[in-house]
């Protein structure tokens, strides 16, 4: 190699390796160099699995390229990719993120037979009557009575939750979890929220006050940013 910048820089940290991939080299070059670099060190049998973080810089990889890269790194040596971080995302993804990140404020009564569905978080100012249904890909906040069905995280976000001023729902659904009202006549609860309790592996209803402990990051958008 000449005096050019290396295409791949490897840094060791306490948590594992970080692979910096030069953003100006072509993808083929990177793959070749990567194979070379990895071949240089043959793994020993007893070596533990090392976690690797790949930093892509201002490079965008398609799903296929990501797969290729992952294949090379994980196959040859006993590495495990922990994350692939890129500083750029396509406009299309950004737009969907924006859509999903928005807090949609709706002021209506969701009556029997009506379905209100939104992307992102939903703030409903009004009641959900029995037989009515609200659905959101993020959290659901209801300033009113929840008497119908609420489904948060419809695209599978298990961190989503449902909060309401008054809660006496027919059903609460979060991601693929469903809980329903008890068969006996029960009073509703004020200022409570429903979240998935991972210990019990079901939806629990708890006071809104406890929410700050369980969910540090409330916005669905921030969660996605953090999780990549």
């Amino acid at each position: 190699m000449q005096e050019t910048k290396p295409t791949i820089t490897i840094k060791g940290t306490r948590d594992g390796l970080i692979l910096f991939i030069d953003e100006n080299s072509s993808f083929e070059e990177i793959l070749q160099d990567l194979i070379k670099k990895l071949d240089a060190s043959t793994p020993q049998k007893e070596e533990p699995v090392v976690s690797v973080k790949v930093k892509l810089g201002h490079r965008y990889l398609t799903e296929e390229q990501r797969h290729q890269l992952k294949g090379i790194i994980e196959e040859k040596n006993r590495f495990q990719i922990e994350a692939m971080e890129s500083d750029v995302i396509p406009i299309k993804d950004a737009k969907t993120w924006l859509d999903e990140s928005q807090l949609k404020v709706v002021n209506q009564i969701v009556r029997s037979g009506q379905v209100l569905e939104t992307k992102g978080d939903l703030l409903l100012i009004g009641d959900v009557n029995p037989g009515g249904r609200v659905r959101a890909s993020g959290n659901i906040y209801i300033m009113g009575n929840l008497l119908g069905i609420a489904h948060a995280g419809i695209e599978g976000d298990q961190e989503a939750f449902i909060a309401a001023s008054y809660m006496k729902p027919a059903q609460l659904r979060i991601a693929e979890y469903i809980s329903r009202a008890p068969d006996y006549e029960a009073d509703g609860v004020y200022m409570e929220c429903g979240i998935i309790d991972p210990d019990q592996n079901k939806i629990v209803i708890d006071s809104i006050k406890t929410l700050s402990k369980q969910r540090k990051v409330i916005s669905a958008f921030e969660r996605r940013m953090n999780n990549g």
Binding site: R111, S112, P130, G132
Partner: peptide, 12 residues
């Protein structure tokens, strides 16, 4: 009452 609720939704 449930049916009335549904009807009101349609009328609105």
């Amino acid at each position: 009452v449930r049916d009335a609720d549904r009807i009101i939704g349609l009328i609105e």
